[in-house]
Nucleic acid binder design. Structure first.
Length: 433
DNA sequence: TCTGGGGTCCTAGGACCC
DNA sequence: TCTGGGGTCCTAGGACCC
């Protein structure tokens, strides 16, 4: 069932430019004008400043390649905690203009501006410009903004000109912006769907938007029908203020090179994934009722299993047996693997978890005390200060490779008044990497 | 895009229930 | 006992996003 808003809306999409790199430049003014990239901790470019992009650095590039095309690049580890604070500041600014702010990701938001022209004494473009100026002045970063009738069109608009773009797409001009836009660039249409559409000679966003409703309904599922409406200026996606509370799932994966078929090593990776996922779950006071385990072969194909946990929990010891069981099911001796992954799903607030008559309540409470001590030690002395013996082979391997150090502590004059605990307690949005 | 890591939502099909 | 129709819940897998 698709519901279309009955009256026209004005929706703004704001997208910070090269967000991580811009934050670094804002904090370290000496980096302004220089090519900066983040992602040092993972060996690939997570974000590149426009100076770096100008020299050919792209997102996802390996670091050695980035250095090759841009020898004077400044290479930094990603500091999510700090980027999160910039993000929160940006959302606060947006809320001064309208309460209808949807925090879409760490560096993007939608704002419903419908009806605000009067109170701002000017057209939507003026409002957008003021937002842009305020963000630049208070945060020292630039952002690109698009305004149009729907979220999908606002996305098209904000991407139209970057960096520091400001694009308004009124209803009568929609076709101009869609005519030369490849259909796979539309938000929500990926490689698979565009390949399918190509069979029907649909290659541009305009050709897709101009398709007959019967065609769309006959061949495509709900999300694409919605996108089709949105591209035609009929708003179906509301701007939702509710901040997504917590997570629906928490996953941890790790790629290792070279690939391995060593059973002990691979299980150790998985065990470490599980511990990391549980740490994050506990930090958000969540507990999982389902566990998904998957291994990725050299051919990039995943095999996995999903298991129901005997008790809803965020304590690795309680999950270890399931992990072993699942691993036995998935692991094949003759296969080379390049990645392991664990997903905690069926999450619910820890306080809602009910004990059953089979549970060893005193035992669980004891375990809770042990883990809260572990978590505290980890916070003070670093991750994996205390860990499962089964994860040890993974740790030894990491040390052997020359483990990546913790991110250095930064002075954060910008954020005086907030202590570490408060900051850690803040919601961290999905990071764009 | 020869490929890192962390998420969400939708759909089809089976199990199970009146 | 082979025989309707309808609802709900769950799971596997696909597709897409930042």
């Amino acid at each position: 069932m698709i519901t279309i808003h009955s009256w026209p809306r004005a929706i703004m999409h704001i997208d910070a430019d090269a967000f991580f790199a811009s934050c670094e430049q804002a904090i370290h003014p000496e980096l302004k004008g220089r090519p900066v990239i983040t992602g040092k901790e993972r060996g690939i470019v997570a974000a590149a400043s426009y100076e770096a992009k100008a020299k050919g650095v792209e997102r996802g590039m390996r670091l050695f390649e980035a250095k090759k095309v841009c020898p004077d690049v400044v290479l930094l580890p990603s500091d999510y905690e700090t980027y999160s604070l910039f993000s929160i500041r940006m959302f606060e600014i947006l809320r001064r203009f309208s309460p209808d702010v949807e925090e879409y990701s760490i560096d993007e938001a939608f704002v419903d501006l419908t009806g605000l022209r009067r109170s701002f004494h000017g057209p939507y473009s003026d409002i957008a410009q003021r937002v842009q100026e305020t963000v630049a002045k208070e945060l020292g970063i630039s952002a690109s903004i698009g305004v149009s009738l729907t979220k999908v069109l606002a996305k098209v608009a904000s991407k139209h000109k970057k960096p520091c773009g400001l694009t308004i797409i009124p209803g009568r001009d929609i076709h101009i912006y869609l005519a030369n836009l490849p259909v796979e660039k539309v938000w929500g249409i990926g490689p698979n769907t565009s390949a399918f559409l190509r069979k029907f000679s649909i290659t541009t966003a305009l050709e897709f938007a101009g398709s007959k409703e019967e065609f769309i309904k006959a061949y495509l599922s709900k999300p694409y029908q919605e996108i089709w409406h949105e591209l035609n200026g009929r708003s179906v996606y509301p701007v939702t203020r509710e901040s997504k509370s917590g997570y629906k799932s928490i996953s941890k994966t790790r790629t290792f090179t070279p690939p391995s078929r060593d059973e002990t090593f691979i299980f150790a990776q998985l065990s470490k994934n599980l511990e990391n996922a549980c740490i994050k779950a506990r930090r958000y006071n969540l507990a999982a009722s389902r566990l998904i385990i998957f291994l990725r072969g050299q051919d990039f194909r995943d095999t996995g299993v999903e298991l129901k946990l005997t008790r809803t929990t965020a304590y690795p010891v309680e999950i270890m047996e399931s992990l072993k069981e699942g691993f036995r099911e998935v692991y094949k001796h003759d296969t080379l693997y390049r990645l392991t992954g664990v997903v905690l799903a069926g999450l619910q607030p820890e306080m809602d978890v009910q004990y059953t008559i089979f549970d060893d309540v005193p035992g669980i409470e004891k375990m809770a005390r042990v883990y809260s001590a572990v978590d505290e030690l980890s916070e003070r002395f670093g991750k994996h200060t205390v860990q499962h013996a089964s994860s040890l082979p993974a740790k030894l391997q990491a040390q052997h490779e020359g483990d990546r150090g913790d991110t250095p502590v930064r002075k954060e004059e910008l954020f005086r008044g907030e202590n570490r605990r408060q900051r850690l307690g803040l919601p961290v949005l999905n990071a764009k990497v």
